[in-house]
Design a protein around this nucleic acid. Structure first.
Lengths: 234, 234, 234, 234
DNA sequence: CATGAATGAGGATTCATTCAT
DNA sequence: AATGAATGAATCCTCATTCAT
């Protein structure tokens, strides 16, 4: 990625043409970016190749050249979405933190990421409408997830050992819970705002919900019976 | 209703054609049912009027007759989905139960309803892709939700008063949390199964997740400092 | 066929609209006729659905409605071509004629048919470019040909028995020979005229070639050693 | 030629890339060969410039460099096909053979050539679909054919003079007859096999048909009335 | 000479919707 | 009330050809 950027920077110095013909990397990146927007806004079936061409400034033919067909382009969008979140996540260093802090940090990161990347939520939703038809084929994406599970598992073990967390929590369940609370709220804020007659998309509401997620997750993780009680019962 | 039935009975004697032409109610119900399936499976843009006509056995022209256009048909589907869940919910009688029992019941009902009505999840997701464009227009649906909020609010108050629940919980937040955990899991089970390499659609996993939702919600609702509070009260 | 014509005639009396909407039979017949011309002129790949729509006066969508896709339309054209020649042929009554007369009649009919139906030659040529890909799938066409072989076989047997024809002639070979001489000349008249610098498409040339086919076929069928045989029999 | 070879040898030492860039002759020959295959398989309209580039290993731009456009490339293919058969034919030396032997040889050569050069048949067929549009423009090809007609004419005259052949046979007609029987069978073997439910592409069938052509042509050429009869009538 | 990116006009096919009966 | 034919505007995709290097 750095190499690429360098190269294109170097070149754009030489010839400052706005949107670059003869610059395959830039062209295909522009197409991908436009495709992310379009698929995000309209879903798979609603997305229009013509619109992507227009948005990206590229010739329609180039889309087929670089991505094969609509499916291929969508697949590229899907992959880039997952690669995006997982690689950001990799910088969290949960192992260096106390269990409670680690979970707080993971929850905060996740919520912030979802807030900052609405396209991720949208692609997810689209992909699930298709029952993960495309995702299943993407080995590249599938390999991305075991580090995440290991990291969470490690935190949970440490927390249980120190008595901070309840025992027996499944790390996959925990991650899904965190994601649920964040993604569902954001993905469904439009219908939720409508039915509850309350603007859940407003900044204060969003901040409140972020705190709520933390409260729910940490509230749940508290040991089932406080230590004192346990001792008392013995 | 009686009139209609009488009429159609009278006529079906006259001309015994299998599926009923000249039976407006049956025709439009068949169309709606087919539309639910189609929109559920394909989303709004992916749904095909032709497919709905085929699936329902009705003439395509009838769809336009009863529902105006594709939008109108979709709106009908959307409304029927919300009416379905809210009217089932109305039978819960949460006010008659102890706070903890009431929440357990609400959680269990909600999870079971989502499990039994995948079309509800799908429609929700589709509607959110469109930022609730259609829902906003449906006064009928919007009016359906204040009883739900009131009921939950009442339970939370009773729980807080008795020391069973923490205080300051927003009923809308609580409902969204319950819905999040259920809907997100089910809507996303296809991608989640893929990325976590684990069949989250299997019966035991589904049952485990149902228990997990209860644990999370009730775990969260526990008073924040149980020992102190409890001690104080004793 | 007669029924159809009658019906559409009856109707066109009632409502004299030039090209008939609401007359499926006429519409699909018009499409087929236009398709025959287009595929004949341009071959499969060169044919344009748009052109067929224009030529037939039908809406493009109707082509897909009646024939499925380009392949289906081509297949219909192919079938109609074979049905055309074989059903005309069926009226020849070769069994009622003396062997030599029967062959003369078959040759004359075949040549005349080819002359009158250039589209048949063209479709044949197109189909062979595709190695009979479509024909192989058409059971309907394949069943059309055994009566022809039987009829020729019978004539050859009678001719051999009476000493008019040589023995051991394969009826399929004979038919292919007759077809070869006629079809090749006509299909290739354009290149042949060019390379031999002689207008082989002119009427006198066509008549001369018709006589030539007869002479070749009958010349070939003469018994191999006429003198001896004839003498012996006298 | 020598210069070119020298040059390319010198360079192939320098950069041993498999197929030769910087070797104009090889590049254009490779393009032509690929074009022959492509036009043969798909016809003019069905042929793809991209496919020819891929098949030949040449850059698409080179095709335009050497042949101008699709038409020019097709024309080159067409010319090479005719040059191929006519120059092979030139070696037959029919004048040195007895008339019957000469015809036998011509028939055998022609059949063998068609068998060995399916692309010739295919190009012919394609060119005739276009009514010899391209051929007419190719002076080079047109000049190729008068020697053939002269040679056949000479043989026929000698045969008629010696009483071996019937009189009044048009040499162009004779050649077209020979070509008809060979080309039609081979070009149409796919449809003929299908409609006659018999594999006419099998080796034994091909050999049998080769003999059949000879039998038909020589059978036809036999004098109409044996000499004895003629004498008797005088 | 050679390359691979780029293009615009068109190609088959599909869709929601309306018309005539 | 119900039907099946008909439509025109898109929609995805492909093609021959040219441009910049």
């Amino acid at each position: 990625m750095t190499a690429t950027q360098h190269r294109s920077t170097a070149r754009s110095a030489k010839k400052s043409r706005g949107a670059g013909p003869r610059d395959p990397e830039r062209t295909s990146a522009a197409i991908l970016a436009a495709a992310v927007s379009e698929f995000t806004d309209k879903g798979y079936a609603g997305a229009r190749i013509d619109a992507i061409a227009r948005r990206s400034g590229a010739n329609k033919r180039m889309i087929y050249h670089y991505f094969g067909d609509k499916d291929g382009l969508y697949r590229a969008v899907l992959e880039s979405a997952y690669v995006g979140i997982r690689s950001s996540e990799a910088g969290l260093q949960l192992a260096d933190l106390a269990p409670e802090k680690a979970i707080e940090r993971l929850v905060a990161f996740t919520w912030d990421y979802f807030l900052a990347h609405p396209e991720f939520l949208s692609i997810l939703s689209t992909e699930n409408l298709h029952r993960a038809k495309f995702l299943k084929k993407s080995q590249r994406v599938l390999e991305l997830h075991s580090p995440l599970v290991s990291a969470i598992s490690d935190v949970l073990k440490r927390g249980a050992a120190s008595g901070t967390f309840r025992t027996g929590v499944d790390p996959v369940h925990l991650y899904i819970s965190i994601a649920s609370l964040g993604i569902f709220y954001l993905s469904n804020r439009w219908t939720l705002s409508a039915i509850f007659a309350r603007d859940l998309t407003a900044q204060p509401e969003l901040r409140a919900w972020g705190r709520h997620i933390s409260a729910v997750i940490l509230g749940f993780l508290r040991p089932e019976k406080p230590l004192a009680n346990k001792a008392a019962r013995l």
